[in-house]
Design a protein around this nucleic acid. Structure first.
Length: 490
RNA sequence: GGGCCCGUAGCUCAGUCCGGUAGAGCAUCUGGCUUUUAACCAGGUGGUCGUGGGUUCGAUUCCCACUGGGCCCGCCA
């Protein structure tokens, strides 16, 4: 039943009896695999030490070939028994695929031309007790990969690359904001009141404050704006947000976005910023402004398209969603067969966009200007009071950023919160509660400000050519397995 | 919430249609082999067939329920 191998346990005993610790403290690594491959001409004949996991072994009697994998790739160790000391020989006879080994030796080529490290010394760095997945199919079962990410990483090295690219994107966004003078801050994840978005929160309690009801944040917007009121001028936060909703290929209940607020700017500023940020990342990472995604090409060459979606929708459907009432919404829900549970104007407008326009946003597209009733935190559009100055940036038909000219009028803001509160009482569970503290803050006066939330997960999908958000989240949430089946763990 | 597909050895899979209590490769163990790279050759170990129930003389196989996963649709930013 157990997949722990008795023979491997016995190897540990054999090594310890000979005074060799199978779980030592350190090892001095001089080169990674890729460095030896890339620098072979200079390194040939020189002594190096490498360390990594033994992924394959080919034993031929007096000679053994071991493929050592470190985070840069694999390199072959070439081990001749008659060139090893006693300790190394004992390590060799007690090693198996999956062990972490250190090899000190000379850079050389084998007779077949494979760049190798000709071993002088072999060191056990960590004896595995488990059996690795087989060497040619590897680990492919999606569930097993997500539940055992350690195995996934060792068997599928491109997974590490995916997360490296994700990290590079995050760094790139940070660099962009730092270069604009943004201060990186941290605001509460555990909040008394949630807001800044429409979503169901996770509820929790804080024991030492009389079991106070608290919420995991759905957004950090209202906190960052308090900092703008305070005079910070430019602030951003890498924000893990939590929304108590179903997961699918582009939604995860916890997700990462970077929110940035910039005083004295409006949403036009951020359209330029996003064009520059995404195009420079594509260029830096792929050497091109054109990125392959799922067999199609996304062109990040600025300027990005602008879709004035309310107008577009009017052309297609005849409805001006910026002027409809909730009663209109009910009849549109029927005539357009939207099938909404709560067919108010907010959800109907949103749903019409999804139905008719979302498919046209494969190339980077700013979806411009939303009806005011969809934007409780946004200034009205200059020249059209039915609209708000807000854009959502779509790439690959996914929303990757959401930005607006922030509402700074405290009296109007209070009215918008009151409207939301009314929606809430009508049964819209996603409408956030009234936040008197926030109103109090902006009553002191908030400068003109542009705000933006930049998704990390979805751009990571695009830049790593993935179709599921779970592929860019190291440990996606999974249901708990019944006690008996723990996927290879018993 | 609806539809489709899937769960058999550590991993990747066959077997299920047409019921007779399981098979391959890799890994692992034993032996052989001093330039292999999916090394090779010979032999061995390893499975309450996702869980529970039903039908049956007999169920991995048929039926029902449950459970976990994937994809699509719906809902949700």
């Amino acid at each position: 039943m157990t997949s722990i191998d008795d023979a491997k346990l016995e190897s540990i005993n054999v090594l310890r009896r000979a005074g060799i610790e199978p779980y030592p403290y350190t090892y001095s690594v001089s080169h990674h695999a890729r460095a030896i491959r890339d620098g072979f001409s200079e390194l040939e004949g020189r002594e190096v030490s490498i360390a990594g996991r033994a992924m394959q072994m080919r034993q031929m009697g007096g000679i053994t070939f071991i493929d050592i994998q470190d985070r840069t790739g694999r390199i072959q160790g070439l081990i001749r028994n008659n060139e090893l000391d006693q300790k190394s020989l004992l390590v060799l006879t007690n090693s198996s695929i999956g062990d972490t080994l250190g090899i000190r030796g000379v850079v050389m080529k084998s007779k077949r031309g494979e760049i190798s490290v000709g071993a002088r010394e072999l060191t056990m760095l960590s004896k595995t007790l488990r059996t690795l997945p087989n060497k040619w199919q590897g680990l492919t079962d999606t569930e097993a990969r997500y539940r055992s990410r350690h195995l996934d990483l060792m068997m599928n090295q491109e997974v590490l690359k995916t997360f490296e690219t994700r990290a590079k994107f995050m760094t790139h966004v940070r660099n962009t904001l730092d270069s604009r003078g943004g201060i990186e801050v941290e605001t509460p994840i555990l909040q008394d009141l949630y807001g800044g978005a429409n979503a169901k929160p996770f509820k929790t309690t804080y024991h030492t404050l009389d079991d106070k009801q608290m919420f995991l944040r759905i957004s950090d917007e209202l906190y960052l704006k308090r900092l703008i009121v305070g005079g910070a001028e430019r602030v951003y936060e890498v924000s893990k947000d939590f929304r108590n909703e179903d997961a699918d290929t582009i939604h995860n209940p916890e997700f990462t976005q970077i929110e940035y607020y910039e005083a004295f700017s409006d949403y036009e500023t951020f359209m330029k910023m996003m064009e520059e940020m995404l195009s420079s990342f594509a260029l830096k990472t792929f050497g091109s402004l054109k990125v392959e995604y799922q067999g199609e090409t996304i062109d990040f060459t600025p300027p990005f398209a602008r879709m004035y979606w309310v107008e577009e929708l009017k052309k297609i459907t005849g409805f001006d969603v910026s002027s409809i009432s909730d009663d209109d919404a009910v009849s549109i829900n029927d005539s357009e067969k939207l099938g909404l549970k709560h067919p108010d104007r907010y959800h109907v407008a949103d749903s019409l966009y999804d139905k008719y326009l979302k498919s046209k946003t494969f190339q980077p597209t700013f979806v411009m200007d939303f009806p005011t009733f969809m934007c409780p935190l946004t200034k009205i559009k200059r020249g059209n009071p039915k609209l708000a100055e807000r854009f959502e940036l779509y790439v690959g038909r996914m929303e990757v950023a959401n930005s607006y000219s922030e509402l700074t009028d405290p009296v109007y803001q209070r009215k918008m919160f009151e409207n939301q509160e009314a929606e809430r009482k009508k049964g819209d569970e996603d409408a956030p509660p009234f936040d008197e503290d926030f109103i109090d803050a902006i009553e002191y006066g908030m400068p003109p400000t542009a705000g933006i939330g930049i998704s990390i997960d979805r751009p990571a999908m695009i830049f790593t050519n993935q179709t599921s958000i779970k592929e860019v989240i190291l440990f996606p949430p999974m249901k708990t397995l019944p006690p008996e089946e723990t996927l290879g763990k018993n």
